[in-house]
Design a protein around this nucleic acid. Structure first.
Length: 570
DNA sequence: AACATACCCAACCGCGTCTTA
DNA sequence: CTAAGACGCGGTTGGGTATGT
């Protein structure tokens, strides 16, 4: 090692003398430096740190240093070893290339599969993902993923297999490619994570069941889930997505125009329910935005971009552009298959806790159902169980959904192009699939079109509820003329809207029978212990709900606070 | 063979968080 | 308690290589 080091230092010296210009970036080359050996100092005597590719000599020095002193204290490397690299650079080099047990080479199939799963769970949490992939670095995973999505984008394939598509996190991430334009801010992932209760591994156990795969990772409840889920204060942030309670505030948001704090969750809510007003805890501010962004504003040609014409406001073009993300989110049209995402369970929570946006008052002790992770967990668990029973039929049902020409195929349901690729992931008995809760709630979810959608372009994707009655309705849906469905769809958000908005739609609603079914479904979700309570509340709630046709809406509207309280029971 | 495009990957940058004095 | 430094993370960039036309 010692010899190697000497050789390397010699080589380095040679390079420094002969060809350092080829290594140093232009700005360094042109800067007035006085260089000595392998390091350089500027006129102030500060070290001029080298950038660019590492040489073998530098690697050797770094390795030697770490061998002696261990990892950490990276800034000391420069001082002690004479390496003219900043500590950051050293750490990166070590972590990504020099540290032992690094796995080199292409990802194995298992690794790729795991990455997909992890990404569906975690989003762009590369470091966390890397923790599940021994020998792999976050950078590697990130690069792999970015390449992958690029490839799939080009191929017009959805990012995830259909089985994964309903995972709240994933769905929210993909789903937020609203109109092909995505809205992303640094903070969104945190928000999403905060608002995504994961029943670990449930969504993925079905993937490649024959592979006897790994899942070496212990079921991971995101730290923030545990904390925020059970009353962590940061969870409250979701009740007011426009406000960044946490320390992380999207950098971009500060510059967005007339749309303060345009974190993605603003759209999470909007999209999940086809409402386009940023959900602000402060109704006044919403009104303010409404004034600034009148209905029908089409300054950027996305009048209906956010679902339908209920649009009360939308971010300005400037804001959008500022929110434009990394290549995970695609330009308009690139993701032709992206459709209205399946409604998110978390959306329901958002919905539930949106009294202020809807003008309903909720008891203070329950102002944020987000305070209760138990409810979410219950719902997830219930939906998993339920869909395990019903997945197969609903899958068939959804697959048979009529796709009219011009419709945008719903990637989350099934993309024909992708079907073959993901066939091997399919498991009719998967606990994932179309979940009861999600399907159930999807009735409240108007469509968000992928490509600057107007209502004429895309019928809603409605996940068939797995219960018998609802399922038949879903089948009806497939047979329902598109125009009629559109009308139907337009009316659906009424459950969310103030009464004056409710009059916008006159489509069919759901009758008492449906109410019962839904009530039963929720009761089922809540389990025996809670179901009777819930049913009582639902019975009370439906009678006073804003719309007979919106059972869930009215349930959530009127009763979920109580449910929320229930969820806080030990 | 020349060019264009896609792909891969290492490295940098900026910011947030953690730690420590 | 606070400020500064260290560290970690995620997004982005740019160069080299492979592949297609």
């Amino acid at each position: 090692m010692r010899e190697l080091l000497i050789i390397c230092v010699k080589e380095m010296s040679r390079m420094t003398n002969e060809g350092k210009d080829s290594v140093l970036p232009k700005d360094q080359i042109e800067s007035p430096l006085v260089e000595e050996g392998n390091s350089a100092r500027n006129i102030n005597g500060e070290m001029n740190l080298k950038k660019g590719p590492w040489t073998a000599a530098e690697d050797a020095i770094l390795m030697e240093y770490v061998k002696k002193h261990g990892e950490g204290n990276w800034n000391a490397v420069q001082k002690h070893s004479g390496l003219s690299r900043c500590g950051k650079s050293c750490r990166l080099r070590w972590a990504n290339h020099l540290r032992p047990n690094l796995k080199k080479g292409a990802f194995t199939q298992e690794e790729e599969q795991l990455i997909i799963e992890l990404h569906a769970k975690m989003g762009n949490k590369w470091a966390r993902m890397a923790a599940h992939l021994p020998g792999r670095t976050d950078n590697e995973i990130k690069n792999y993923w970015n390449t992958r999505i690029k490839r799939r984008q080009r191929a017009g394939l959805p990012l995830y297999p259909p089985e994964v598509s309903l995972h709240p996190y994933r769905a929210s991430q993909q789903g937020l490619n609203i109109g092909g334009t995505s809205y992303r801010s640094k903070g969104h992932h945190d928000h999403l994570l905060h608002n995504c209760y994961e029943i670990p591994d449930v969504p993925f156990d079905s993937l490649k069941p024959s592979q006897g795969r790994i899942s070496n990772s212990a079921p991971e409840l995101p730290d923030n889930m545990l904390m925020k889920g059970m009353g962590g204060s940061r969870y409250d942030s979701f009740s007011s997505p426009l406000m960044y309670h946490g320390q992380k505030r999207p950098r971009e948001s500060s510059t967005s125009v007339s749309y303060s704090g345009s974190g993605r969750n603003d759209f999470l809510f909007s999209e999940s329910f086809g409402l386009s007003f940023p959900f602000d805890s402060d109704l006044n501010s919403t009104n303010k935005i409404q004034q600034q962004q009148p209905l029908g504003d089409d300054q950027d040609g996305h009048t209906l971009l956010y679902g339908n014409n209920f649009s009360a406001s939308k971010p300005t073009t400037a804001a959008m552009k500022l929110e434009l993300p990394s290549l995970q989110y695609f330009d308009s049209g690139s993701w032709g298959v992206i459709s209205s995402p399946p409604p998110l369970l978390e959306s329901v929570d958002t919905f539930i806790q949106s009294p202020r946006a809807t003008g309903t008052t909720v008891g203070s002790n329950c102002s944020s159902p987000r305070n209760s992770g138990l409810l979410d967990a219950l719902l997830h668990e219930a939906k998993a169980l339920s869909s395990a029973k019903n997945h197969y039929s609903s899958e068939k049902s959804s697959n048979s959904s009529t796709v009219t020409p011009g419709d945008i195929a719903d990637s989350s349901t099934l993309n024909a192009c992708d079907a073959a690729e993901w066939d091997n992931y399919s498991d009719p008995l998967s606990p994932l699939g179309h979940t009861t809760a999600t399907s159930f709630f999807s009735k409240c979810t108007p469509p968000i079109s992928a490509s600057g959608s107007s209502l004429d372009e895309q019928p809603p994707h409605i996940e068939p509820f797995t219960g018998r009655e609802i399922k038949s309705e879903a089948e009806d849906y497939a047979l329902t003329p598109v125009r009629e469905r559109e009308r139907d769809t337009i009316t659906r958000p009424d459950a969310l809207l103030p009464s004056d908005w409710l009059e916008q739609g006159s489509g069919k609603g759901y009758g008492v029978k449906d109410q019962v079914v839904m009530t039963d479904a929720i009761a089922a979700l809540l389990g025996d212990d809670l179901s009777s309570d819930y049913k009582q509340m639902a019975a009370a709630g439906t009678s006073s709900g804003p719309s007979q046709g919106w059972v869930l809406g009215s349930c959530a509207w009127n009763n979920m606070p109580a449910v929320c309280q229930m969820s806080e029971l030990p």
